[in-house]
């Protein structure tokens, strides 16, 4: 337990050391930051976008923004929070883009859609190439994920950041720019919506 806490406390210091190294002209420091956070950033993107290709695009775009914006990093906040904020905003932009929306509106002939309780289900699911198939084995978890994906975007972001990614309320407030009380109340409302969607499952 104490080791976990010490690791958590050491993370910002390590991040700041790597950032300082990068600002002093050491490109390897940035590579270290990418290695450290690539899975978290990719996972967040995938949870918010639901597509591996889009998630990789967004994750890379977020790292590119970090690369060009690190000069302005003031070492007053956590690098992780800053990185997550950039990632969430990049995903929001992607979701708002015309190309993404048009793709979401397209219905593939071999995968007819069934809409039920605002959730989108496919009659034939081909998960052979999806990382989901490797990671989600439990039926309940799969249903929960579908219910989360059917939430409105602002609720989905909060649920993913808190319940899946395990960020604290304070971190979510820093990432989203919302007040702490607003984060708590919005999360409570989002969970209530989830409960309605998952009635009978949980």
């Amino acid at each position: 337990m104490s080791k976990g806490i010490s690791e958590i406390m050491a993370a910002p210091i390590e991040d700041h050391r790597l950032i300082a190294g990068f600002l002093n002209g050491d490109p390897e420091s940035f590579n270290q930051l990418v290695l450290q956070y690539k899975n978290q950033v990719f996972n967040l993107c995938y949870r918010l976008l639901g597509d591996v290709g889009d998630a990789e695009d967004c994750a890379q775009e977020a790292f590119l923004k970090v690369y060009s914006g690190l000069k302005g990093f003031r070492f007053q906040s956590s690098f992780k929070t800053w990185l997550y904020r950039i990632t969430v905003n990049t995903c929001k932009n992607k979701i708002a883009s015309a190309e993404y929306r048009s793709r979401q509106n397209m219905i593939e002939l071999d995968k007819p859609f069934l809409q039920k309780d605002d959730a989108v289900y496919r009659e034939i699911e081909d998960n052979t190439n999806s990382p989901e198939s490797l990671m989600i084995e439990k039926e309940t978890a799969s249903v929960i994920l579908k219910a989360i994906n059917s939430l409105p975007q602002h609720e989905k972001i909060l649920i993913v950041l808190c319940d899946i990614e395990g960020n604290s309320y304070h971190e979510i407030a820093a990432i989203t720019g919302l007040k702490l009380g607003t984060v708590k109340s919005k999360l409570a409302r989002a969970r209530h919506h989830l409960r309605n969607k998952l009635e009978g499952v949980i």
Partner: peptide, 9 residues
């Protein structure tokens, strides 16, 4: 929800 799992890049 925590068990949903992390996806690697």
């Amino acid at each position: 929800a925590k068990d949903i799992g992390k996806i690697v890049a």
